[in-house]
Nucleic acid binder design. Sequence first.
RNA 1: GGGCGGUUAGCUCAGUUGGUUAGAGCGCUACCUUGACACGGUAGAGGUCACAGGUUCGAAUCCUGUAUCGCCCA
Length: 847
Amino acid sequence: MPDKPSLDGLEAKWVDVWDESGVYHFDRTKSRSEIYSIDTPPPTVSGSLHIGHVFSYTHTDTLARFQRMRGKSVFYPMGWDDNGLPTERRVQNYYGVRCDPSVAYDPDFTPPAKPDPKRQVPISRRNFIELCDALTVEDEKVFEDIWRRLGLSVDWRYSYATIDDNARATSQRAFLRNLARGEAYMAEAPTLWDVTFRTAVAQAELEDRERTSAFHKVAFHRDGGESVVIETTRPELLPACVALVAHPDDTRYQELIGRTVRSPVFGVEVPVKAHHLAEPDKGSGIAMICTFGDLADVTWWRELQLPTRPVVGWDGRIVSEPPEAVAAAGGAEAYSRLVGATVHTARERMVELLRESGDLLAEPEPTTRPVKFYEKGDKPLEIVTTRQWYIRNGGRDTSVREALLARGRELDWYPDHMRSRFEHWVEGLNGDWLISRQRFFGVPFPVWYPLDDDGNPDYDSPLLPDESRLPVDPSSDAPEGYTEDQRGRPGGFTGDPDIMDTWATSSLTPQVAGGWERDPDLFERVFPMDLRPQGQDIIRTWLFATVVRAHFEHGSLPWQGTAISGWILDPDRKKMSKSKGNVVTPIDLLEKYSSDAIRYWAASGRLGADTALDEGQMKVGRRLAIKILNASKFALSVAGEDTPADPAAVTEPLDRSMLATLADVVEDATSAFQAYDHTRALERVERFFWEFCDDYLELVKARAYDSASPAAASARAALLIALSALQRLFAPFLPFVADEVWSWWHEGSVHGGSWPDAEEFRAAAREGDPAVLASASEVLRMVRKAKSEAKLSMRAEIERVAVRGKNVNHVRLAGDDLAAAGRAARLDLEATDETELQVEVSLPEAE
RNA sequence: GGGCGGUUAGCUCAGUUGGUUAGAGCGCUACCUUGACACGGUAGAGGUCACAGGUUCGAAUCCUGUAUCGCCCA
């Protein structure tokens, strides 16, 4: 035991000790009922770690430590989410390169010494992926160091990365099984498309942003009748117009429905249709349907069975060939003025064309409206018809939707109200889950297509690998029955060029970490897992997708419960996020206050509750940690060679009262933890600890020093018993300081020890009455108050303390201790009917 | 527009199934260096529980409405 205990250096010391002792190692010989398994969120390593991560991971760690001390073998692996677009972007910026699949592999490639983000060097896909692999390894090291320093009780032997062989094999296997059962399918369909990243995106990745645009009044014509005026914010899509649409009840357009009109400039005949989604009070009440301007166009196109006239290409520019109908109507020349232009420029040119033809009936009228964006993109999404892979998720299938909603009800949610986010998301799905991405760093689809004699792929007869070959890379591996030299040749094959959406891998973390089909013995012991901890922002993505995959593959939930952490708000109560630029990195705070102090702050935030970044709380945590050091030192130094404590030695009513109070605290903390309310557990333990220090320690101090008497032995035994409980109760929250003070008088880690059992303390208390300590504390407080008001030292001698009241007998049981702690020469007690204790303090005569 | 959650002391938050005078910490003020702790201790001041109705013997707590903040979805 050090003379002057300190928090400095505890992290470095204990991180190493824990690592060497393997105290957090998962014991895989245990049976399922003896195991607590956690499906840890793999953080995205391409971003910097911020204080919000520390917050939610600490929540999980307190639960893991509680379960471990309860005797469970805790399966608590850590993963890294390194596949996907965020890593690609980081590699591009970090090395100053970009992936160009048409470039050949250069085995000697070295990245530019001085990366120039404006002039990224085009490199082959394979070189690019090598750089991704290299950089993620570095990033993961940084993350792991911080996690260790924060004291996460992870078993690092089970770490995984979402791009590693196991994750790729698992993703491909699950996909092949989905495909075999018809849960995955390929379709050529209108797809939300990001023109910057040139990839399809899924519904879960969308966000609406307000954008300014303008209504353009445009005239369509008909022979022998008045022209029809529509209003559109996207005149550049006029060559893609396939129909006009009005509401069936709109009397203004009744006689038009079923006839045709002619588009301005291009002269294409298009039908006028009726559909209930047309909004009569919007604009002129009649709209043009283009392929495709927005999701309503897609609905109309599908339900009214209209033709397709695509004009926007994968790069967001107007395609070179006009739609056949435009060419046939003689609009090719006008169209040629739009070719190659971005959507924005094409709009300006189209307005010019309309002005020239006299079909723009008014000046464009500015407006703002929500526009769909890819959450990581900065250009509006276009809708492009492409061939993509999907997984069913209930978006267009009522029975799947009902089954998934039932899974949501089956899952335990902490806090419970988070379930509604899941339900609303599932109810609002409007299509299946699009899982293919036209990107590079990710899990490839394990699929090839045979080429016919003209070299065209036959998408209807995909070639699939045997599961034993996984993971495969169809861009470098050949399908069974083919050789590599048949790649791209007529009669040969071609690999599917796409990769899976990150979530298509992340949705399998229980399977990846749990050893599904790789280590069946492990999988059977940990799956379905006990807990999925995560943030509220990814309920619709990660949580939902994981439920979908487990539902299809295993016919079960992936876990029994989910613990949802809130946001971290900056001191101005704004959500902390990279885009707002208010992100705080944890490392400085960890250094300034200690890991335990940061954990204390994090553990003070309830599940589901947004929590402000509050350095004040960290300061409190630091003070608490120091107090634990000092109180432990005191109790141990007083107890001397009396360790281990003998419960039978606890005879004094005050000591028994304290242990009875402690038993209640243990009971409360235990049930709070079992209800996933770590905050309540901490609060109860902490409150008791301060009362223990301020009142109980002061009361028994003098008696405990008087080494000869049995009353002293009682105090010393009670001190040690309480200390043992407190150190263990704090262990999930403040693991460093808890193990430090534990090590002063025990072999082995407190984290491998047992969670206190209320009954043990109840027995040691031997029917002690909590009221004794409470009453003595109350009187002691009154004595202090009198001294404080008289501006006297707490050490000042006083002549007499008189206590009256109903419960004066409680005070009597601690009378000697009270007199000693208050330095009172006399303690007079008088039983009366008063419910409140009346305390009179006779101070010494003023000099 | 729909949904979810919040609104309690200057700040950050507790407040169990409705039950005496609404609690804690920080900050502030005063005092105290007492044999674990000055990286400390003790005490004090500080609140119309967002607002308006209602139910009840009794409401921070239950009901209705309003305001306001955050998030999600249209």
